[in-house]
């Protein structure tokens, strides 16, 4: 399976999980964003260009299946994919801690950008509660999910460089 086909299959699965499973895993009002985690994870594994393109496409689909303004997730996912892709280090595929932190930070930035865009569009939003009740918990949730799925995705998508261990980071 090519990298493109593999990414497409994973993203299709991510959307099914986002629609069917994520709404059932709401904790303290926060819905996990499985699609976003996939975008940043793929960006970490495949690079900035792929991260931005996949982020844009998946973000647009995410907007269409959601109820918010169309185009905002396309923007935030694209930016997050580009940032995560730019941070792709050669050793990333063999650890889970750094990807987890990068996904967490990317999620925080993306959710903050989403909130800022909503404000610019004139939506009702309280800044401090939005940060504490939505942006931060979503970022942490995304990081936890990334820790769980990154090793499997790295194994699946990095067949050009098989993963032997998850403890080689920093050498």
């Amino acid at each position: 399976m090519t990298k493109g086909a593999g990414s497409f299959a994973i993203i299709a699965l991510a959307f099914i999980l986002q629609l069917a499973v994520a709404p059932q895993l709401v904790f303290f009002g926060v819905t996990p964003n499985i699609v976003f985690v996939l975008v940043t994870t793929i960006a970490l594994l495949q690079g900035q260009r792929q991260g931005a393109v996949i982020g844009f496409v998946t973000g647009l689909i995410f907007d269409l299946v959601g109820s918010g303004p169309i185009g905002v997730s396309a923007l935030t996912f694209c930016v997050a994919g580009a940032i995560a892709g730019a941070l792709r280090p050669s050793a990333l595929a063999e650890s889970w801690k750094l990807p987890m932190v990068i996904v967490m930070v990317s999620s925080f930035l993306a959710e903050s950008l989403y909130a800022i865009t909503l404000l610019l569009l004139g939506e009702s939003l309280h800044i401090i509660p939005t940060l504490t009740d939505v942006v931060l918990p979503t970022a942490v949730y995304s990081g936890v999910i990334a820790a769980g799925i990154f090793p499997a995705l790295a194994y699946f998508l990095r067949q050009d460089r098989p993963v032997q261990t998850f403890h080689r980071i920093g050498r």
Partner: peptide, 30 residues
């Protein structure tokens, strides 16, 4: 902890910038 970032090519920058602009246009149209 080592992070080796790769310098983006000019075409990549143009592509990413274009996608961001298209996203903003879509948001504005919507």
């Amino acid at each position: 902890m080592k992070i080796s970032s790769t310098r983006p090519r000019i075409t990549d920058r143009v592509l990413i910038g274009g996608l961001i602009i298209v996203s903003m246009l879509i948001t504005s149209i919507d």
